[in-house]
Amino acid sequence: MNTIKMHTISVYVANRPGVLARIAQVFARRGFNIDSLVVSPSIDGRYSRMTIASQGSAEGLEQIILQLGKLVDVMRCVDHATDVAVIREMALVKLRVDTEQRTEALQICEHFAAKTVDLTEKSMIVMITGNSEKLDACINMLRKFEVVELVRTGKVVMARGDEET
C-alpha cells in the first residue's frame, strides 16, 4: 500500500526570490527529506528548472506535487518515472592512490567509463556520469582505495521524446 519509493520530480519555476524556500517548505512540513536538489536557469532566463529527488509514500508525494502545483511561482511540476525519462547524475571522487595502486584504479574507471580529471603523485580525481545505480556501483568499487572526498551533483531529469519535462 504505502511503499516507499524514490521519486524524481521536475519543477519549472519563475526565477524569483523565495521560490526555493516555498518549495522546501512543502516537503519539510510533511516530513519529507529532500535527497538531492539541482537548480539551474532554463533556456528562458525568466524561469529555472529544479530537479528534486525525494523518497516517500506515493500518496504523500502525490499531495506534495499537488501543493507544489498550487504555488504561484510554479509553472509545472511532474513526477518522472524512470522508464519514460532520462535521469542522470555526476560524481567527483578524490582518491588517495600511489603509483602502485594507480593501474587498478584506472581499470575500474575504464569499466564504468569514468574519467580522471586530475592526477598527482598521491591522488586522483575521478569523474563519473550516468544513472544513480551506476554511480553507486562505481563508487563502491573505488572504496577499496582511500576515498578522501566525494561530491555528487544530484539527479537531473529530462522526459524522452515529445514529452515535456
Binding site: P17, G18, L71, V72
Partner: peptide, 15 residues
C-alpha cells in the same frame, strides 16, 4: 516574508 510563508496564499517582498 519568511515567517508568514506557510500561512499565505502568496507573498511579496517589494524590490
Amino acid at each position: 516574508f519568511g515567517t508568514t510563508m506557510p500561512l499565505v496564499k502568496h507573498s511579496y517582498l517589494i524590490k
